[in-house]
Design a protein around this nucleic acid. Sequence first.
DNA 1: CTGAAAGCGCTTACAG
DNA 2: CTGAAAGCGCTTACAG
Lengths: 344, 344
Amino acid sequence: MATIKDVARAAGVAPSTVSYVLSGSRKISAETRVAVQAAIEELGYHPNAGARSLRSTRTNVIALALPLPSRGYLPVGGRFTYGLGEAAGEHGYDLLLITAAGGGSRGPGLERVARSRLADAAVLMGVEMEDPRIGAMRALGFPVAVLGRPADESAAPWADLDWEEAAAASVRTLHDAGHRRICYLATVEDDIRSRRSYSVRGIDGADRIAAELGAQIPVCPSSGDPEELRRRLDALFDAERPPTALAVQHPAAIPGILRHLAGRGLQVPRDVSLVAIGNFPEDLGGLDVTRIELPVQEMSAAVTRLAVAAIEGAGDPGPAARSSAGHVLIPPRITRGGTVAPAP
Amino acid sequence: MATIKDVARAAGVAPSTVSYVLSGSRKISAETRVAVQAAIEELGYHPNAGARSLRSTRTNVIALALPLPSRGYLPVGGRFTYGLGEAAGEHGYDLLLITAAGGGSRGPGLERVARSRLADAAVLMGVEMEDPRIGAMRALGFPVAVLGRPADESAAPWADLDWEEAAAASVRTLHDAGHRRICYLATVEDDIRSRRSYSVRGIDGADRIAAELGAQIPVCPSSGDPEELRRRLDALFDAERPPTALAVQHPAAIPGILRHLAGRGLQVPRDVSLVAIGNFPEDLGGLDVTRIELPVQEMSAAVTRLAVAAIEGAGDPGPAARSSAGHVLIPPRITRGGTVAPAP
DNA sequence: CTGAAAGCGCTTACAG
DNA sequence: CTGAAAGCGCTTACAG
């Protein structure tokens, strides 16, 4: 593999000149610049990443700390990897994956990556309301950006769909259609128990809109086990005053829920209206559901921008600048489908 | 951040001794080993990745070259990232993502990563029968392992589900149930046109079993556009002699296909039998479909093992050893569900 | 406008 | 059993 010395020799200049041509941080005569670029092209030269990062303390890599997939959920993390990879690429960064379990025998991935300077920053996914990773990374002086909205909003820059408003808007849509017996089917209980931020925020939004409307909006956790979920639906619809509408924050379950309702002889939307919250377009496989989709591209772009800003601002500005770093709350957009009808 | 010098000072030894404790490549007295390990623990020391890779020409990173998601398919690449990340971790490697488009302004990702030694090897996904990436990496002396089964089977180590046999077994299952009008619904046409290996292998398997059974098994490409797919299904079932059974290699489309058949008044399996090929468990969202699932863990583990072997054997053994490197063909396992019944 | 030199933090022959 | 020294390939003050 060609080194900077090879390029320098081929171009008849000093290695440092090659470096300056590459970084553009010095004025170079057109003549030598052209010669250097020709040599680079000719030799297929790319700077050695290890040497560059050793010298410059920049790796041009962003680490992605994936959550473990919750039982019964699609591995949401995987769906973000494209969006994040592309966003990172646009800023000149590559993306290094860290699975929560990962690291093998080398210890917990995130801390190892931070300490060994394998990356310049980390994007944290599947964040919990009180997430220990944020404090840990801050203690190491390692920049992070959070995909999600933790309780302490000033602890780190973050970007998220506004799940509170998404839940509220879904319920409001159903309420506006005249429904008075609305049930909020929340995320799977594993996620609620571990206080994943989108779970908690969604439930908070349902509670908030209930208070606002002066309505009772019971919240029911979903289950990753399809059979268990069906039992809960049965319990709900076997009750004396069954709901006429559902707001559902468990995207992967939507097709199964629709099938189960049909199996009970309940037609959607004639007998039951439904709004889905936070699904990927593909989750529904062509089903025409009224929904709030997860804006993967927007979220990926936003959190990447924050990570890059955190890298570039690291050290320089005071802690004040770092904490008010930037918060991006993406407003939910509701897509009208065929699953909401006026209350019977 | 602590360096090897800090550790050496704290432990009262030379930096080289710390290095030897870390690598285990030299006998160290128990006393000094303990002292060094205590200092490492104390200081939270992790070796700087850049320095280490510069010196040792090993990064302990495997690059993952993702395919662009085909239109209408779930981003299959994302589903593999967990499996590959964990497998890599078990071998002491991290995973660096390269999206096909990726690299931003820095040029095509894979070649850049190879040339700059950001990784020790690459795993190639979404491979085509004649995939130019394989030759390109070979020319650079950069080890690869392929997730898929390209035409030139000796060009690189590869691991794949045996799609030919998967297709054949699916058709055979339907034939055994007495069906004589079986249609093979292949992958989306984009994938067929670009000759993605699983597309081609699947169709080859259908053709092979047709010849074997002396039967006509028409092959119909699927479509990423749900509406277009419905039109094709209509054309199929409006024909004079409509199929009584489908083998479907387009996992994401299964729920939509079942709904569309139901919409036409066709009951599965009473009127039409169906076998799904290559789906993830979550694709079906609880549907009880006779199917051959994609063995993500097995495939991930196998291709990672091949990548690691390619790294460790790089340079050392002759080209003979490299080309016969190792091919893992995973036999399909059929899971009986409720979508196959005897022919009417 | 360009070059020579130091040094980033490691690993690994070389020496004892 | 341990240490001193060279050097991996870059970047960036320092010098002209």
